[in-house]
Every structure is written in structure tokens, then in C-alpha cells.
Design a protein around this nucleic acid. Structure first.
Length: 421
RNA sequence: GUGAAGGUAGCUCAGCUGGCAGAGCUCCGGGUUGUGGUCCCGGCGGUCGCGGGUUCGAAUCCCGUCCUUCACCCCA
């Protein structure tokens, strides 16, 4: 019998880490509000078909990474592997096309993918995400990109690089893919086995192969940005212009072909060199065909996801948010313990954060604990005070003690707290 | 799914040419009867990941397995 452990690829956030996480979410929530994005919460699991149709049967996510199970009603359900498809489902299901467009939402929630864990990669990982649905305007692309850049700046994620590309649309991509496939067939002998498979399945994916010979072949391959239709070209140029106007430096990256099938036109990724082998700290793109793909009316959309674990890796160390009680109640005799409990309750009732010993510590141990807790004040209770219906108040850092009527304690502490902080 | 390196106390680790399981930190107690943080003393705490093998004897060597880490694949 071995002790129970968190499942492979998952982790616990103990209170110190959880409070750092809370602080990150608070920063993000403020920023999203400033950009006009409102929070959305969707279920942790969806009907499997949503991801099969939305994310794409040819993607790794659908082919080998989903946590899929049958419930007791024989429904096939899947733990959410990514955030965009569920939000598009909610957009269609609740008729959000009747709202002012675009509908702008953000989320903070876990994603589940069955993969081998490594640095910056987990089976359950948390993402921030933003989606703007219902407008094809290049300004929306630029806005979500600027939003992600601002989030990194606010959180202290340093030295990130913005890479961008365009994937074209249904007017120009098919012809380009044929052209690329033709070029790759001429170089079949120089491609690795994986790329030979990709050639049939999705030739665009050969671009992010790391094998030297493949990279050499792809260096000479036709590039999609040079084969965009006029509309896509104009859209991409407009996005790039606005992104630069937002003070960012987009680097054109013809290898940037993201692994989800729904992307059209703009794709982007922020990279950092602090993530081990995973360089992407956040990325996304436009998905003008997705809503129609899952059964809604043709509706444009654009958005991104960013992994909290990777943000944390790339972030400079954050100070631990303080969590000290205002008051720690110490008793010098067993008989005073019940009174101490009451005193703590009274203080809490008055809106103060109060702690007391719950472990049967000695008086010295309680004082030690009071000091460690960071409490500004300690209330000392013993038989002498009980008899006189008084408490002794000690200012921990400032020093000094005074005796007070028990009834005056909460008001007195409250006034000194506001005065001294 | 593939490859490599590791699992010893709550945490960080030492011990590994086979011979009684250790340190630091944390935690608890004590240092002239009711006053914290520093310091000193003491204590709690381990099936050496798990299972098998070799041996008089295994934390140490061998095999298997699980887990962790890193990398491939791919993504956040």
C-alpha cells in the first residue's frame, strides 16, 4: 500500500502558492475589465462531439489527448481540453449574436490533456483566455493581442517575443496547401517520417518540425503569407499596423502554424526562453469558421489562451501576499481558554481577523505562534485578567502593553489598526 | 507512444567499493511559576517508492514495476 498521490501530471497548490495564484487572477481580472472583457464560466466537461467537430479530427488533441468517458446515461463526455470551442458553443446556445457585437469574454479555468508531463506541461493545467466573437475587424485581432501583452506586463512576465503569421482563409488556403504539398512531394526523400505523414494529413504542420533536413526543405518552401488573397492580405496588414501602434514588435514567423484546425487568418504566439523546451507562454488567433463548424451561423471570432504554469515560469518572483491576522489571542491558563475563544469570536464579529491557539500550546508556544503569525496585536488572557474582566493588549512590533476592559477591546484595536497602518 | 536521469524524515539532502539509517531546516517542549522573533538544550518524526532476486547480511548489487524530472511528439 503506497500513500495516495495527486494523479500524474496534476499538482496541489498549497496555501502560499494558492495565494500567489489568487493575486495573479486578481491582476488579470482588473485588466480584462479595463479592456471590456467579462468573465464567462463553462462546464468542466462537454459532449465529446463538440471538440471533435470544433477542434478538428486531425489534431493531436482530438486524436490522442482527450480525457473522454461515458457517463451512466451512456453519453460520451470529454474534460475540456481547450477553451474556445465551449465558449463558441455557449455563444450559439444562448443566442449571443443578439448582444452588441463583438461579445468579449475572458476565463480562468483548468484544461485537461492526456500528455507526458514535462517542464511547463501538465495533464491538468490552468489557462487565462480571452475571446471576442462577432467581428471580423482587424482592430479586434489587435485588441486581443495588446490585451495579452498588457497582461504579461502587469504580471511581470519579462522578455517575451511576439510572433505572428496569417493562415489565410477558405478563399486562399486550399490553393496554397496544394502548392505546398506539391513542393513537399518533390522533396520527399529529404523529409522525416513524421513529416511524410503530415504531408497527407496537414502539410502546414511540417513547418514546425525540428529535424534539420526538414527545416532546410521548409526554408525553401512557398510561404502562406506570400499567397494570401487580397482580403486576407489587407486584413493581416491592418492587424500588423495596429499591433505596432499598440507599441508591440510583431515578428513575422512563417513557421507559426498552430495545432488546432480552426484557425484562419491571424495566428500569434508569445514566446519566452525561460520555459524549458516549451517556448509558448500564450497564443491564439482568428477562427472565423469555427462557430459555423459547430452548428451556428457563420460568425467571426478571435482569441487566445495562456497557461498559468508557464506564466509563472516566465514571471519574476512574486512576493507572497500578506496573510497575517490583526490579533492573536494568547491564554496563560487552561481556565482562560474558553474566554479566549469568546474574545476571538467577538473580534471576528467586529470585522477583525483574529486567531487563537487550537493546538494546546504552552504560553510560550502561543506567543511564539503569535509572533510567527505576523499579528500586529496580541491579546493576553490569564486568571488575573479574567477576575477583573479585563484583557491585556500587546503591540507586537511597536512594543508596549495596556490593560483594557474586555468590552472595549474590539473598538480599541480597530481604531489603532487604522491609525497605524 | 519513445528516450534519458532520479526516488532515503513534512522539506532540502548526505550515506551507495554490501556490515546497527544520518544532518540541516520545520514542528513540539524546556532554559527560576504569566510574555514572541535571536541563542542554547532536548524531543517527535523513516517499511530507505513498491515487488522480486543475489548474499550470512541489501538504502547500497541485479530484474521488474510505479512515480518524479528532463527531452522527443505536440501544445498553454
Amino acid at each position: 500500500m503506497s500513500a495516495p498521490r495527486a494523479p500524474k501530471g496534476t499538482y496541489d497548490l498549497l496555501p502560499d502558492e494558492a495565494s500567489r495564484r489568487d493575486a495573479m487572477v486578481a491582476v488579470a481580472a482588473r485588466l480584462f475589465a479595463a479592456y471590456g472583457y467579462r468573465r464567462i464560466v463553462t462546464p468542466e466537461f462537454e459532449e465529446t462531439g463538440l471538440f471533435e467537430r470544433g477542434v478538428g479530427e486531425a489534431t493531436d488533441i482530438v486524436r490522442k489527448e482527450m480525457y473522454t468517458f461515458a457517463d451512466r446515461g451512456e453519453r460520451s463526455l470529454t474534460l475540456r481540453p481547450e477553451g474556445t470551442a465551449p465558449i463558441c458553443r455557449a455563444y450559439v446556445e444562448h443566442g449571443l449574436h443578439k448582444w452588441p457585437q463583438p461579445v468579449k469574454v475572458w476565463y480562468y479555468c483548468p484544461m485537461f490533456r492526456y500528455e507526458r508531463p514535462q517542464a511547463g506541461r501538465y495533464r491538468e493545467h490552468y489557462q487565462f483566455g480571452a475571446e471576442a466573437i462577432g467581428s471580423a475587424d482587424p482592430a479586434v485581432d489587435a485588441e486581443v493581442i495588446a490585451l495579452l501583452a498588457a497582461l504579461f506586463a502587469e504580471l511581470g512576465v519579462e522578455s517575451v517575443r511576439l510572433n505572428m503569421n496569417s493562415m489565410g482563409d477558405s478563399a486562399c488556403r486550399p490553393a496554397y496547401v496544394d502548392r505546398l504539398r506539391g513542393y513537399l512531394r518533390e522533396h520527399e526523400g529529404e523529409l522525416c517520417g513524421d513529416c511524410l505523414e503530415r504531408l497527407d494529413l496537414n502539410p502546414l504542420r511540417t513547418f514546425d518540425c525540428k529535424v534539420q533536413s526538414c527545416r532546410a526543405v521548409l526554408d525553401g518552401a512557398p510561404r502562406i503569407v506570400e499567397h494570401l488573397c487580397p482580403d486576407c492580405r489587407a486584413h493581416f496588414d491592418a492587424v500588423l499596423g495596429l499591433v505596432k501602434r499598440a507599441g508591440l514588435e510583431p515578428h513575422l514567423d512563417f513557421r507559426l502554424v498552430r495545432g488546432l484546425d480552426y484557425y484562419t487568418r491571424t495566428t500569434f504566439e508569445f514566446n519566452s526562453d525561460r520555459l524549458g523546451a516549451q517556448s509558448g507562454v500564450g497564443g491564439g488567433g482568428r477562427y472565423d469558421g469555427l462557430i459555423e463548424q459547430i452548428g451556428g451561423a457563420s460568425t467571426p471570432g478571435v482569441g487566445w489562451g495562456s497557461g498559468l504554469e508557464r506564466i509563472t515560469l516566465a514571471m519574476r518572483d512574486q512576493p507572497l501576499p500578506p496573510s497575517a491576522p490583526d490579533v492573536y489571542v494568547v491564554t496563560f491558563s487552561e481556565e482562560a481558554r474558553a474566554s479566549a475563544f469568546g474574545v476571538a469570536q467577538d473580534l471576528r464579529g467586529a470585522g477583525l481577523a483574529a486567531e487563537l491557539d487550537l493546538a494546546g500550546r504552552s504560553p510560550k508556544g502561543q506567543l511564539k505562534q503569535a509572533g510567527r503569525s505576523g499579528a500586529q496585536f496580541t491579546v493576553l488572557l490569564g486568571l488575573d485578567e479574567l477576575g477583573a474582566d479585563q484583557v491585556r493588549l500587546r503591540a507586537m512590533d511597536a512594543g508596549g502593553e495596556e490593560d483594557l476592559a474586555a468590552a472595549d477591546l474590539a473598538a480599541h484595536v480597530a481604531s489603532r489598526l487604522t491609525k497605524e497602518s
